[in-house]
Nucleic acid binder design. Structure first.
Lengths: 216, 216, 216, 216
DNA sequence: TATGAATGAGTATTCATTCAT
DNA sequence: GATGAATGAATACTCATTCAT
């Protein structure tokens, strides 16, 4: 999904750029390892080995194992933030914008950093870091709620409880990281499409009117 | 279920019963600790201390830390299985039964074992255990899909991709364990209600009158 | 000098007593190792090996390497404190009591814990520990000054600056730990005797009156 | 001696001189760092940072961390040797010369290199280095003993055991490095004066009139 | 049944040292 | 001369697990 697995064997470029590339490679490798084996089951030795580098070298680019997880989280979150920004400017109605967000969100979640972003637990981090992550996560939540409220305001969305709707939506999307694998039959886009279908139209048949008075 | 914090100080009863009670207390205590601090951040000492018992004592009731997590998982899953069984017999239409399941599912997820059930990672378990858990989880997934298909068959549900719909639904529900805390403002039932509203009716306003009143 | 090098091979006695004995052995072994190789050059593995025990076992008796050093320090200091107490009650005049202290001090310094007591640096300890040690050391210093002042008061001692005199005395005594080895030709008592001779009478010949107006 | 904090920013001068200056700065900076944080708690990074230079640069001027400590030791010892030489030629009687030495010794101990000279442990050095240092230290000890013996010979000093007297004197002086700080209320000279008073006259009041006035 | 004691295996982190540029 | 980058070796500390009592 992302290319440069080991810039240690890719000499070109100037100094600062090299450093940046290598750091990126460290983060990416970590993200993949975490996704595959989990944070606690991944030792720095594992990551170093995957990069064909020795353990102390990692410390040249990252100050901590915790910082490593945090960097992965940030990397993933950045994509999500971009997604939010793009979505906000994407469509006319609140619903259209929300749909756009779902697509981009799915893409971000299925990226290498999806797991870290979603599963980085406060529990695994120092209180300070935990708080920062929590705050950032909450920011995304607020974005979703805002779009839902906007949709309600412009009449394109009808839900009783925007907060719970946001939780449900985010939950469904985040959960993708639990079952999605790169070799999956469905692309992120296809998944998003199916989700949109469900979330927009609901389970109940739309044709004509609601299937009865007692709608269940 | 949430009571017996330490049967070590509650002497009476016969042999086998005593053992069973204590084992239950171990599992429950573990489940709570895992939920609070995560599996890897919980040491057996922590659990033992919570039970006012020493570490080796735990091994009298569980053979492993891994077994402990597995037991928690099983305990939670049992509730979910019951939920499925009840749901299957709960209503007339596929949709009604699915809605019933959502309610019971939410209740199970918010129980003490919810976290373990949802978050017990294959990563934390030996391959063998991991496979067992995966299979059991998949069973629940199949139940949901079956209900959705039933609903489609009887016309009470209209979705394009039952599999993705099941993933979305399960995802939203499982995710509850990430944000739900006992002191939350909403009960499991209330959450389920909101979720049902969203999943049944969708975000888009229903053409005529939205199926007013309690849609459940 | 002290006997029980390894109670791990000395089974008898009751529970609590056993524990205490072993902990003492840990501390003593640590003290000896520190004295021989220095704090930083002594690894826990070294100490464990000396006790024919594995490293984690040490943690059963001491919570920290730092705590280990501190315990050694305390052990040594305890002897010094006893020395002070005994000295305070030892003689009539301030000078007699001071002389008594010098004797006991020398004995304490040449004990296995002498090195730790004298050389435990604030630098090697956490700020908190460092502060505690500093305070305790300062207590001894005050004791010495008090005796000197008492001697001045009762006419048995004549010095201009009690504080500096205390520093000089303590310095000479503490320094013993730098050069003293168990196999040394002089016993602690003999050393103390020589020191007393020097400190009480001074370098200048005493016979008749002071050797001249210009006493240097 | 205390000035040249970083000749890296002071370009002029010829080649060899430059090198020498920089090496001196390295040694001095190291000495200060060792004194402040201890040898083992000072990393080469610390020293490099203090010089606004990178770690490998240090190796241009010193071959080793050990060599660094040794150089500091040598630097300090040189002062002490000078002190001995000057003292040897300073006065008429052995005692006068000894007193002169005490003054110069105190000055050397309170210098930036005092700590290293006194506290450089054999433990921190390779056996070879350790042996060299021990020999050099012993040289100083011999000087002191020689002066004492000279004083005994010319009647200006009266002590039973010259060796122990030398140990006591050196101990008191060396120990200054444990408690002396640059911001201390007493100058090295003042300290030496007090010490001389104590060591020359002793604690016991002199029979007739104590050698009043400035006894030095 | 319960526990004190002990251990093996593992892991993050530090640091002096080297070397190509 | 100076530095960025890399590494080997070491070390404190943790924890699940076992076993004699």
């Amino acid at each position: 999904m992302t290319r440069p697995s080991s810039p240690w064997r890719v000499p070109p470029g100037d100094r600062a750029r090299q450093h940046e590339l290598k750091r990126d490679a460290v983060i990416l490798t970590a993200a993949r390892a975490f996704r595959e084996r989990g944070y606690h089951n991944t030792s720095l030795d594992d990551i170093a080995a995957a990069l064909h580098v020795t353990k102390p070298t990692l410390y040249y680019y990252v100050s901590n194992k915790e910082q490593m997880l945090f960097a992965c989280f940030e990397e993933g979150l950045a994509r999500l933030t971009v997604a939010c920004d793009e979505a906000r400017a994407a469509g006319a109605s609140g619903r259209e914008r929300l749909v756009a967000l779902v697509h981009r969100y799915a893409l971000a979640i299925t990226s290498d950093f999806g797991w870290c972003m979603v599963r980085a637990e406060d529990q695994d981090l120092s209180p300070a870091m935990g708080a920062r992550i929590k705050a950032l996560k909450s920011g995304i939540d607020q974005e979703i709620r805002a779009l839902i409220r906007a949709g309600i305001a412009d009449g394109s969305i009808a839900v009783r409880d925007p907060k719970m709707a946001a939780f449900a939506l985010a939950g469904a999307l985040n959960w993708i990281s639990h079952w999605y694998r790169d070799d999956a039959s469905l692309s992120a886009g296809a998944i998003a499409e199916r989700f949109v279908d469900l979330f927009v139209n609901g389970l109940a048949p739309r044709t004509r009117q609601a299937p009865s008075g007692k709608s269940t």
